[in-house]
C-alpha cells in the first residue's frame, strides 16, 4: 500500500509529460488532453490506474496495429520469392492463434487486477448520495459524527486524500455518473443503488457529466466537482448545513418575498424559510455554487435572472417553466436574493 502511494506521488511529478502521452501515441495533434473533464488528466489513484491501463493498451494496440499493417503491405508489395514464407498456414497459426492467445492471457489478468483495485469500497469513506433527475443532480450529504445532514444540487464538494463513496440512483430515467478525472462511470438506475468509490488526490475544480442518454436535455446535464483541502471541506460542510441567511438589505428581502409569492417554494427548498418544495434543486446555498443550470452557466446575478426568465429557451424540456412575465426589477431582486444565499 505504501509503495503504491509513493508510486502515485512519483507519477504526480512526471505527470505533465505523461499526461499527453496517451494522445501522442495516436500520432495526432492534441487539442488538449489536460482539462477539467478528461480521462487523460487523472486526479485520483483509481483514475491513475485506469490511465496506465489505457496507456499500456494503447501502446500495445499501436504496436500490433503497425505490425499487422506492415505485414499486410509486405504481403501485397514484396517480391513473390521474398514473401513466400508468409503465405502458409503457419502464419495463421502463429499470428492469428498463438500470438493473440499469449498476449490476451497476459492482458486479461492485468485488466482483472485493475478491476479489483479500482472502485473498491474503503473503510472510513465519506458517504455522499447523488440522485440523477431529468436533467440535474440531487446531492445529499448524510449526517456524520456531529456534522448534520444537508442537501445541495449540481455540485460535488469533496476533501482530498479521503476515500469517498458516492451512492447513486435515479428518480426518473437512467442516468450515468461520470467524473473522468476521478475514474470510470457508474449508471444511475431507478430502483437500484450503485456505488462509486474513489479518492481525490489533487485539489482543483473538475467537471462531471451524465453519460447515459436521458432525454431532451441530456447534453446539458453536468455538475462541478470541487476537491478541497480537508479543512476547507469541513468549513464548507458546516456552512452548507446552516439554514439560509436572512436578507441583509431590503432589496434582497423584496427578492425573498417575490420568491415566496411567485410560488418558487412549491418546487424549491430554502432551509430556514417556508420554501420547502421537493421537486427541484435545494437552493439554500445556491449563491455559493460555481454554476447554475446543472453545470451550464457561471453563477451570478445576471445569469440567474436570465435563467429564471428563460429556462425553456435555454434548456427546453427542463421541468422549470420560464418566468418571462417578471419585470426586470423583480427579476433582479429574485436573482440578487438567490445570489446572496451563500
Amino acid at each position: 500500500m505504501d509503495f503504491e502511494t509513493t508510486l502515485t506521488r512519483l507519477r504526480g511529478r512526471i505527470d505533465p509529460v505523461l499526461r499527453c502521452g496517451g494522445g501522442l501515441l495516436w500520432a495526432f495533434p492534441l487539442a488538449g488532453c489536460s482539462g477539467v473533464q478528461s480521462a487523460l488528466d487523472p486526479a485520483g489513484g483509481d483514475a491513475w490506474d485506469l490511465y496506465w491501463l489505457t496507456i499500456v493498451m494503447t501502446v500495445g494496440a499501436t504496436l500490433i496495429f503497425v505490425f499487422v499493417t506492415a505485414l499486410l503491405l509486405y504481403a501485397v508489395f514484396a517480391p513473390p520469392e521474398r514473401r513466400a514464407w508468409l503465405g502458409t498456414r503457419r502464419t495463421i497459426v502463429y499470428g492469428g492463434l498463438a500470438f493473440p492467445i499469449v498476449t490476451l492471457s497476459l492482458l486479461l489478468p492485468y485488466g482483472l487486477i485493475v478491476m479489483r483495485d479500482v472502485d473498491a469500497p474503503q473503510p472510513g469513506a465519506l458517504q455522499i448520495e447523488v440522485i440523477g433527475e431529468q436533467y440535474w443532480w440531487r446531492v445529499r450529504y448524510p449526517a456524520e459524527g456531529e456534522q448534520a445532514e444537508f442537501s445541495t444540487a449540481n455540485e460535488l464538494v469533496i476533501p482530498i486524500g479521503r476515500p469517498i463513496t458516492v451512492s447513486v440512483t435515479a428518480a426518473d430515467v437512467i442516468h450515468s455518473f461520470w467524473i473522468p478525472n476521478f475514474g470510470g462511470k457508474i449508471d444511475m438506475i431507478p430502483g437500484r443503488i450503485n456505488r462509486f468509490n474513489f479518492t481525490a488526490e489533487r485539489p482543483g475544480i473538475y467537471r462531471g457529466i451524465c453519460a447515459e442518454f436521458c432525454g431532451a436535455q441530456h447534453a446539458r446535464m453536468a455538475f462541478d466537482v470541487m476537491a478541497l483541502e480537508p479543512a476547507e471541506f469541513d468549513a464548507w460542510r458546516r456552512t452548507q448545513a446552516q439554514p439560509a441567511p436572512e436578507p441583509a438589505i431590503p432589496f434582497l428581502a423584496r427578492g425573498r418575498d417575490l420568491f415566496r409569492s411567485g410560488g418558487c417554494g412549491s418546487c424549491h427548498v430554502v432551509r430556514g424559510t417556508e420554501a420547502n418544495g421537493q421537486l427541484g434543486p435545494d437552493l439554500t446555498h445556491v449563491g455559493s455554487r460555481r454554476t447554475i443550470g446543472a453545470g451550464q452557466f457561471p453563477n451570478n446575478v445576471g445569469t440567474l435572472a436570465g435563467w429564471i426568465a428563460n429556462v425553456q429557451q435555454i434548456k427546453p424540456g427542463a421541468k422549470m417553466p420560464s418566468y418571462g412575465s417578471l419585470t426586470g426589477e423583480d427579476l433582479r431582486a429574485i436573482a440578487g436574493y438567490l445570489e446572496s444565499l451563500k
Binding site: S105, L108, P109, L112, I113, M115, R116, P121
Partner: peptide, 17 residues
C-alpha cells in the same frame, strides 16, 4: 482456452462486490 479464461476471475476478484 476460452473455458480456462472464464475461470481466471475466480482467483482475482471479490465474490460479489
Amino acid at each position: 482456452i476460452a473455458i480456462l479464461w472464464n475461470g481466471v476471475p475466480a482467483f482475482i476478484l471479490p465474490a460479489c462486490a
